[in-house]
Nucleic acid binder design. Sequence first.
DNA 1: TGACACGCCTAACGATATTAGGTATCTTCC
DNA 2: GGAAGATACCTAATATCGTTAGGCGTGTCA
Lengths: 185, 185
Amino acid sequence: MPRAGLSAQAVTDAAAELADAEGLGALTLASLAARLGVRPPSLYAHVAGVEDLRARLAARGAAQLAARLQAAAAGRAGPEALAAVAVAYRAFAREHPGAYAALQRAPAPGEQAMPAAEEIVATVLAVLAGYGLAGDEALHATRAVRSALHGFVVLEAQGGFGLPLSLDDSFATLVALLDRGLRGA
Amino acid sequence: MPRAGLSAQAVTDAAAELADAEGLGALTLASLAARLGVRPPSLYAHVAGVEDLRARLAARGAAQLAARLQAAAAGRAGPEALAAVAVAYRAFAREHPGAYAALQRAPAPGEQAMPAAEEIVATVLAVLAGYGLAGDEALHATRAVRSALHGFVVLEAQGGFGLPLSLDDSFATLVALLDRGLRGA
DNA sequence: TGACACGCCTAACGATATTAGGTATCTTCC
DNA sequence: GGAAGATACCTAATATCGTTAGGCGTGTCA
């Protein structure tokens, strides 16, 4: 029987595709193995189990998201940078719902935070510097902005907004609200 | 063998306690049955399965949350009402992490939204009326407020905020930011 | 007191994650 | 080019979970 030629990278990539297409809940070692033309136990040669797989997915997603946000913030400042980062954040979550969902898992106790997560915080901090924020004040504001973006994106992904009202307009309202709130801080 | 004297209500209540104490992920029919001194299949006399159980948990949580928010908003207006509702929202999520997590599940397609969810929206809308918002503008603002609160609470619950910085202060910053943002809308 | 409803049980099945151990393939070195 | 070792993949087996089918005993009501 020929080998499939897998690797931790290939397995994680396939898992990300499957999670994005079918939802993170549909990502099982059984479904992933089937997709890769392999038996479930064979995956243990590349990942340590389903928990490890989800952690890899999260790390992968965080790195991609950080890159997207940095690209969006580059060359922009103030409200323009905020809007660009917000749009990029939402776009990533929409394009990669599985990866974004994996990002939500709680880091295991003792597990150090992903380096990509710090990049994301740093990017938002840089945007907030354009609003004249620094120090703890900026850190609190970063949490606020992150909360707002995360909350919107999560609610949107799970259909939490019931009414038939434009989601794009709602998101624009949110970004404008953040902008006004940050100006006065 | 004596009967346990269960009911859909008792099963749901026990499930809520278990989910709040151990996390929604630890809520299985097996663990719930063990807690109730019963065998897993016996639960099917009261709930239709694990999915139905989670839906009941979500409905129960939504009703409780709606009541808490209404109580917080009662007799208050404007910024004071916003702050009170925000604090109540966060307090509920902290006190009932399992119920709040259950609330996040996507409603099944075709399943009508929970009536309690509409109460929550109505409460926030009433608060926003104090900011002079009405119509679609108010609905968009409601989504923004809900996103921010939900995002903060979710990130807090899963330890998503890495830095050793006061969460209370961060939440206060978020509420102040929302207040300023709503004033200018 | 009898009949009936039903709450709870055991038995069984399918899906999942995971471990143990075997086999065949690829690589590498002489 | 061929042997030796690493390892990618396999089958077999186990534990846990959700779920269905069917039986038994407890409660209630005529």
